[in-house]
Design a protein around this nucleic acid. Sequence first.
DNA 1: ATCGATGCAAAGACTTTGCAGCCAG
DNA 2: CTGGCTGCAAAGTCTTTGCATCGAT
Lengths: 152, 152
Amino acid sequence: MKKDMPALQSLKEKIASTGLKVTQQRLVILQALYENDDHPSAEVVYNHLSNENPSLSLGTVYKTLETLVEKSIIRKVYCADGIKRYDVHIEPHSHLHCQSSHRIIDFSDPALEAMILQYLQDKKIENFEIQDIQLQIQGHIPNPEKRVRIYA
Amino acid sequence: MKKDMPALQSLKEKIASTGLKVTQQRLVILQALYENDDHPSAEVVYNHLSNENPSLSLGTVYKTLETLVEKSIIRKVYCADGIKRYDVHIEPHSHLHCQSSHRIIDFSDPALEAMILQYLQDKKIENFEIQDIQLQIQGHIPNPEKRVRIYA
DNA sequence: ATCGATGCAAAGACTTTGCAGCCAG
DNA sequence: CTGGCTGCAAAGTCTTTGCATCGAT
């Protein structure tokens, strides 16, 4: 799924509305997440930005990403490889994890998510309050040079 | 969900059938995973075992867990916290992730998994071969001292 | 002006690697 | 016996922390 980059103003408002200061670093990091839809780690975000922003430090990228997660502007992706990766999409959705390339592809399907949530609510799990669900679909991309397409 | 510890002989056969040598270390590590149903990391497994097995080394625990994953005897759990955790249950199932305690509770529901798999097959995702699915349910345990119960 | 945010570097946590010696098959 | 496995320690990767300085409000 391709992400639509919001206008700069809208990003500023998103940050400001949480009480955080609107800094240049937070803006470029948030933009980088919209530009790179492969759920980058802190290191990948830093490498992507450091040429254009030589004064940006890796530590700031780490801190900023965690801060944005705390404020629910972005979220962490569940991963099996022990690396923290981030996602600008905070609504419930699924991920296709390619075992060979470690690409993670968004797979948003509101009908599926609604179906699962409904199922879990009917199930009545005692002593557990559900906040969010993420379906991780593990597999393999036979033709890495081609796109992965999802039909409705 | 409580795990049933298989007989020692059955564990030995499980290891041998993959072509791996049946060593004492592999046996105790596999047993530890059955005893600790909270999806422990390598470090946690090591701490759990090192008193009883003073000669066991942390590096061996790391290597063994990865080896067992390669042979599909165990699997990795999808986690948002950047730590590799392991699960003896290799069949498709879900996990309840508690945000406060970082406990991960197994939630096996074959009907749910079948429903999701069927849905995804009907969906026809082009250029992606599904190998496995894991549903991660994120939430909170209001009473940590009580059990989390799931009604059928 | 104020207080939170950044940059830097050092420290810490987590994991892998290389190799000599050991042991299961 | 012999090749795979282990223990050890060192190195590597990933992430956090402390603090002086900077800059958004």
